[in-house]
């Protein structure tokens, strides 16, 4: 018999999980929209930020500092890789950049294995976020509330950045017509690099936060990658808010399914995906013509 009180926390857990999916999916689709690159190494960058934060915290730095700095280091690594390797494949068949980033993720996993072994390393949130918070109708872990808070802030900042800055404007224009914006004098190579870095910054923040919640091992980032892919497919390309709604939808669907039919919790998002593709092939919020 199902306890009635179990549904509300589980719904909330689903929203937390969904917020992760959304942030990762937004990073993926930023990169995919502009350059047609499916970044299979996205999960490895999340793990990278996680390990960096772990290394900092275990050497005595504060969690807050690590949360800020680790994603930025991941961003720098990402831009270097984008400039030296991924850049060469723009304009070629997307299968090549997919294979390249797949190769990068294998290299990264191999290195993580060597440095940190295959076992999970202990990475727990700081004491200030350890307890639970009474929400009136239920008690909820403080760290999860903190995650929601950070991800909301990140999302708002991103929306402001894309909609109200000159750079965001150029980015959105480049997605629609790269040739035109080049002709108007924008250096698209700089756009590509910053855009890639931005996607990885989001992944890095999610990676550090997720490490404290879901654990940290060489492949932990990849567990968030597949739901993020499905989010991108369900929502379609080119919609920030679409990814948010889709991510939350999948997170909640998964969490509730864990309550009712546990073995089906992973499969439920694929069922959702199949249904959406049948009814609306371009995705729920996809614009017609963007990536067919």
């Amino acid at each position: 018999m199902l306890e009635h009180g179990a549904v509300a926390p589980q719904l909330f857990n689903g929203l937390v999980l969904g917020a992760f999916y959304a942030i990762v999916a937004i990073g993926l689709s930023l990169i995919m929209n502009l350059t047609g690159t499916i970044n299979m190494a996205h999960g490895s960058f999340m793990t990278l930020a996680g390990y960096l934060a772990y290394a900092m915290v275990s050497r005595g730095t504060s969690f807050w500092f690590a949360l800020l700095v680790a994603p930025i280091i991941a961003l720098i690594v990402a831009v270097v890789i984008e400039r030296t390797l991924i850049r060469r494949l723009y304009g070629r068949d997307p299968v090549y950049s997919l294979l390249l980033t797949f190769g990068l993720s294998l290299i990264a996993e191999g290195i993580y294995h060597k440095v940190f072994t295959a076992n999970s390393v202990p990475f727990s949130p700081p004491p200030a976020l350890a307890g639970t918070v009474a929400l009136g109708f239920m008690n909820f872990p403080a760290y999860r509330l903190f995650i929601v808070f950070v991800l909301v802030v990140v999302f708002v900042l991103l929306a402001l950045f894309l909609n109200y800055t000159r750079f965001g404007l150029r980015l959105r224009a480049a997605v629609q017509d790269t040739e035109m914006i080049t002709a108007l004098g924008t250096n698209t190579q700089v756009l590509y690099a910053i855009n890639f870095g931005l996607g990885i910054l989001l992944a890095g923040i999610a990676g550090v936060l997720a490490s404290g919640l879901l654990g940290l091992n060489p492949t932990s980032g990849n567990t968030l990658l597949m739901p993020a892919f499905v989010t991108v497919i369900i929502c379609g390309m080119g919609s920030l808010y679409g990814s948010l709604v889709g991510g939350l939808l999948i997170g909640v669907a998964q969490s509730l399914m864990t309550l009712f039919i546990p073995p089906a919790s992973e499969v439920v998002m694929y069922v959702l995906m199949a249904v959406v593709l049948t009814i609306r092939p371009r995705g729920l919020f996809g614009e017609e013509g963007v990536f067919g």
């Binding site: 294979l99 190769g103 993720s105 294998l106 290299i107 996993e109 191999g110 290195i111």
Partner: peptide, 12 residues
């Protein structure tokens, strides 16, 4: 795993 990854990168 690292060599395989490098093989992917080099090949592409």
């Amino acid at each position: 795993q690292i060599i395989l990854g490098a093989l992917f990168v080099a090949c592409v």
